[in-house]
Amino acid sequence: MIRFENVSKSYKGLNVLKNINVNIEKGETIALIGQSGCGKSTFLKCINGLVPVCKGKIFVDDIEVTAKNADLNTIRSEVGIVFQQYNLFPHLNVLKNIILAPIKVKKIHENEARIQALCLLEKVGLLDKIDKYPDQLSGGQAQRVAIARSLAMQPKVMLFDEPTSALDPQMKQEVLDTIKELATDGMTMIVVTHEMNFAREVADRVIFLSRGQIIEEGTAEKIFDNPQSNITREFLMKYIK
């Protein structure tokens, strides 16, 4: 579903991603872990072309994102991304946040988009917030609306960029539960996270990134219980007590 071929990215001489090769299958849930500034966010943003790569190729569903003539708007409409800071549109209420893109980008009829939005809001448990504005929501609620907004585009892939880092512990759980449910539904997902327990529980595969390189990847058991590299071990020591 997603394929990185020798991808490198540097900002002003700083190598953020170094020769990344990854292949992610349909229906897989990937947990991407690593220290802050190791290139996790850049990794995600390369997938939908928000950050252009310097070298290498990225494919989403066999379409090259990194091609010069790539139709980025179409690719992006098929790749959902959820940001750390939710990034809901502050001038639109919850319903409009969700239905705007399906109506304008996918040209779905408004009534159909509304019905779909209601289903999604029910799924994330926020049907009663339909006419609220983002400022009136708690962090956890806003993040679940952001997830619903991405899902409304019926994406092939969902990317989560530290979706719970800005939330306090009790709100974290409600967001993590929503993501867990998606994993059970068979959505292809990449979750950048610092929640190691969550990664262990949900991820089919864990990828550990350090200084722009993939140090280790494998099942959660393999990475957490039997890490091969010293760097991985050191990193995990800090997070799992």
């Binding site: 928000l50 980025l72 409409s77 990034n87 502050p90 893109a101 991405s150």
Partner: peptide, 12 residues
């Protein structure tokens, strides 16, 4: 952040 969110949803 808002512009990135809009881009990510596929808006031209």
């Amino acid at each position: 952040t808002h512009i990135d969110a809009a881009k990510s949803l596929g808006f031209s």
